[in-house]
Each structure stands twice: as structure tokens, then as C-alpha cells.
Nucleic acid binder design. Structure first.
Length: 431
RNA sequence: GUGGGUGUAGCUCAGCUGGCUAGAGCACCAGGUUGUGGUCCUGGGGGUCGCGGGUUCGAAUCCCGUCACUCACCCCA
């Protein structure tokens, strides 16, 4: 009976794993250089944890199961609820600001399609505690630093930034009632994926369409500059003015971090979730029909649903699938090679025991070293060394028998030298 | 859940107006090569042509069904 890889899931053969690790290394490296600390959580949680945040609809979109005690669990479809649970449990003991990141593997029970699988990895980074726009700016700076690290510049990607409260205040000045903002956002979120006539029809179905028509909204979304939007928001009242000031600060900080060149103001980015309460952003490829590479924003209270103290925060998630897919499309995926520091070759089968002895020395010194399982000719062993991506070949032959020396060949430059066995074992330097 | 496309070797594919034992390139293994690699030459392993049924003397090829994969829609934390 033939059993294949489950749908929407991936096998990572060593060739694939090198690429995956290349991505993880950048994710981790960028996080660490920005002062974030790594955390991890269980691969599955109580199903109720996700119900609290997302409601009952979530149940059909997660892989869930019941244990022998009748308790319901779900394989994590996102990291934020676990983060909330962990932070709530120690909210008063954790030093602030809480700057945490994670590279969790997660699953969603969806039908797989391009850029979207049932199992994937998603880099999460969050700053919890401060309400200052500085935190929002730093989180965006982390995203930009990653994009730059993998070779993506302003011609390839734009980080589109908006602010839900500012946009809401501006919409209200245009005539949208306060209780209609959520519905308006829901539609605006889809405007780029919807044909113009469908959008117009849907907008005109909204109860307040007479107060703020579809043309007014289109003009607003398409042309409003940051200044005009801030101005409209300020006119809506005291709160709008305060939010506009926050958003102004955010842009100032993005400049200070040196990442404003990758960022654009975009009113269409509102993020569907009601969960976001302040800044919102997404990184979008400039060419190709691909989805957003990442999305995030500010939320007022991470732990509120879990009966924890109020903890405001800002963060984002970035999936491995769309990022790798985009880089592949641009033909900018690296192809990391297999690597070894050295490959030990025995020119004479009598010396095989000595070869293993040397392999042991080098490995104990922390070098990545391998050798051939078969006692074949020197030529074949060199071929294996090359195939394995070895940087150096170390040959044990007549030199060892006659003068107690080994030959070290640099397989990149092709040069070789001899060195005394005892000196080399005492201090195994290859270069 | 709805609709389109595609199924031949590990990968990319050819063969498809029915007809020798189903092929190529890449990859893999072995040898050429008993002290020097990446290129070269020779050979080898690997496929119930997704699966089931039908038509036929004969099906990878034609017909029906089915399954899988894939793209899009829904959803998107």
C-alpha cells in the first residue's frame, strides 16, 4: 500500500532543509539583532483558546481532536493565542518591554493553494507593554531589516502602513457613522480583490451609503495623502486628533529607524480583524499576483480575553510559504550547498584505522568531517569529497608512513601542503 | 463546500491518427582510473503508463467512471 505525503504538507529532504534553514537563520538573526528573545509554545492547545479569540467559526478551520478524557484540543493555527496565554500567566513578573519572537510550525484545515498550505512556519515578533509609536516603528523596522537581508528592496516590496483609528476618524468626517466603521473596513479590506462594479454594489448596500457614497470613498482611498487623512481625522474630534498625533509620531520614528523608504501610507490596508486597534501594516510584493508576505499591527489588549491584566502590544506574522514563493518567482532563491570542513582520504587501506583516528580528532575539535565507507581509489574518494561539499581533503598515504605527515588539499583553490601528524592533531587548523 | 486544468522513472518530459520487449535528459549506482576532485566515456538499477471498467485480435494511446494532485473561488487568524 502506497502512502503519500498528506495534502498541503511538505517533506523536507536535506536539499529543501538547507533552504528552510537559510530562511530560519535570517528570521532568527534579524530578531536577535533587534533585541528580541525567542520563545516557544505547545504544538496544540485547548480548542477553547482559539474559540475565545475567533469564535465558533474557527472550529471548522483547525485540526482538532479529543483526548481519552474527552478534552478538545486543536493544533495551533496561529501563535497569538499561545503568546497571550503565556504573557497573561506572568504578566506582572515579566520585565518590560516584552520583545519576543518565535518560529512556530502551524496547521490550518484549509484547501491548499498557491502560497498557502495546510502546514507552514510563521515568524512572529511582538513588542508588548509600551503604547508608544516607537514600538510600532521598531516592529516595522524588523520586517524591513529581514526584507533587506534576503535581498528585497523598495523596487520589490512595499510595506503598506495604515492606522485603523485614524482611518476610522477620517471616514467619520466623510459621513460614515461610528457604528458603520467596522462594516466599511470589512469591505475596504477586499477592495483590491473585488471588481469595481461589485465593490460599488456592495458599498451601496451599506445603510449609510447615502451619507458617504461610493465615489467619495473611492476618491478618499485612491488619492488621500497622509496629510489629508491626518487632517480629516483631526477634524473628527479630540480622540481623532490624538490618534493622528500617534500616527504622525510613527512616521517620524520610521524615518529615524531608516526604514521609511520601504514604507508607504495606504488607506486600503485595514486588516479584516476587529482585533487590531491602531497601526496596521502588510508587506506586499510589487509585481506578481501574490498575497501579502506578512501582516501585523497594534492591538489594545492581548490578554483581556484570558482574564489577564491589560497588555497592549504590536506585532506581526510572516509565513515561510509566501516568502519563499516570492523569492522563487524573482529567481532570487539561494541554493545552499552541502558543506563539510574536511574529508579524510586513505591512499592505502592499511591506513584506514589511522584515518578514523584522525577523523575522531577533528570531530572532537568541532570540525565537520566525513570519510568514505568504502576502501576505493584515491580518485573516487576525492570525487566523494567534492560531492559532499568538502572544503578540504586530507590524504593519508606514503607521507604518513615515511615521515609521519598528512597532506591537506584546499579543494577550492587546488593548493596543497603537508603537515606533521602530531602537530596537526594538537592544533587542527585547516587553513 | 464550488468550478477549471493535469496524471508515463526520484525530477523535467517525449511517445498518444490504437501495433515490436515503453523511451530521453538530469539524478542515483558501478566501472574506465592501485596517489588527486568538479568536465569526460561505458554499463546498470528504477515504471502493473494514477486506479477500475469498457471497446478491440491488440490500449500508455479511444470511451466511461473514480482517485490524486494543482489553480481559482469561499475563508484568511
Amino acid at each position: 500500500m502506497k502512502i503519500q505525503t498528506p495534502p498541503g504538507m511538505r517533506d523536507f529532504y536535506p536539499d529543501d532543509m538547507r533552504l528552510q534553514n537559510w530562511l530560519f537563520t535570517h528570521w532568527r538573526q534579524v530578531s536577535l539583532t533587534h533585541g528580541f528573545e525567542e520563545y516557544e509554545a505547545p504544538i496544540f492547545e485547548f480548542l477553547d483558546l482559539y474559540r475565545l479569540k475567533s469564535g465558533d467559526e474557527i472550529v471548522s478551520e483547525v485540526f482538532s481532536f479529543e483526548d481519552r478524557g474527552g478534552r478538545n484540543f486543536a493544533i495551533r493555527p496561529e501563535m497569538t493565542p499561545s503568546l497571550a496565554r503565556m504573557v497573561a500567566a506572568r504578566a506582572n513578573a515579566l520585565p518590560r518591554p516584552i520583545k519576543w519572537f518565535s518560529l512556530p510550525r502551524m496547521c490550518r484545515a484549509e484547501r491548499p493553494q498557491r502560497g498557502r498550505l495546510r502546514e507552514f512556519f510563521q515568524w512572529n515578533a511582538d513588542v508588548l507593554g509600551p503604547e508608544d509609536a516607537l514600538a510600532d516603528a521598531e516592529v516595522i523596522a524588523v520586517v524591513v531589516a529581514f526584507l533587506r537581508a534576503v535581498g528585497l528592496g523598495p523596487d520589490d516590496v512595499a510595506v503598506r502602513v495604515n492606522h485603523r483609528r485614524v482611518a476610522a476618524a477620517a471616514l467619520q468626517t466623510l459621513g460614515v457613522p461610528a457604528d458603520g466603521v467596522v462594516a466599511a473596513f470589512g469591505l475596504i479590506d477586499k477592495i483590491e480583490r473585488m471588481p469595481a462594479d461589485k465593490f460599488a454594489a456592495a458599498w451601496n448596500d451599506l445603510p449609510f451609503a447615502s451619507a458617504c457614497g461610493v465615489d467619495a470613498v473611492r476618491g478618499f482611498l485612491g488619492e488621500a495623502t497622509l496629510e489629508r487623512c491626518l487632517d480629516l481625522a483631526a477634524q473628527s474630534g479630540e480622540d481623532g486628533a490624538a490618534q493622528a498625533e500617534q500616527f504622525t509620531q510613527l512616521w517620524r520614528q520610521l524615518e529615524a529607524f531608516g526604514v521609511a523608504g520601504m514604507c508607504t501610507f495606504d488607506l486600503r490596508i485595514v486588516r479584516g480583524l476587529a482585533y487590531y486597534t491602531g497601526s496596521v501594516f502588510e508587506a506586499h510584493p510589487k509585481q506578481g499576483g501574490l498575497r501579502a508576505l506578512c501582516g501585523g499591527g497594534r492591538y489594545d489588549d492581548l490578554t483581556g480575553l484570558l482574564d489577564g491584566p491589560r497588555v497592549p502590544g504590536v506585532g506581526f506574522g510572516m509565513g515561510d510559504v509566501p516568502v519563499l514563493e516570492f523569492l522563487r518567482e524573482l529567481d532570487r532563491l539561494p541554493s545552499p550547498e552541502r558543506t563539510l570542513d574536511a574529508f579524510v582520504i586513505d591512499a592505502d587501506a592499511d591506513l584506514f584505522a589511522r584515518a578514523l583516528e584522525l577523523v575522531g580528532h577533528l570531530r572532537a575539535a568541532g570540525l565537520r568531517v566525513d570519510f568514505s565507507y568504502k576502501r576505493t581509489g584515491v580518485g573516487k574518494q576525492f570525487k566523494q569529497a567534492t560531492q559532499r561539499g568538502a572544503r578540504h581533503a586530507i590524504v593519508l598515504g606514503d607521507e604518513l608512513k615515511d615521515r609521519n605527515e598528512v597532506v591537506i588539499k584546499d579543494l577550492v583553490s587546488g593548493t596543497q601542503r603537508t603537515i606533521d601528524w602530531d602537530a596537526f592533531c594538537a592544533d587542527p587548523k585547516l587553513d
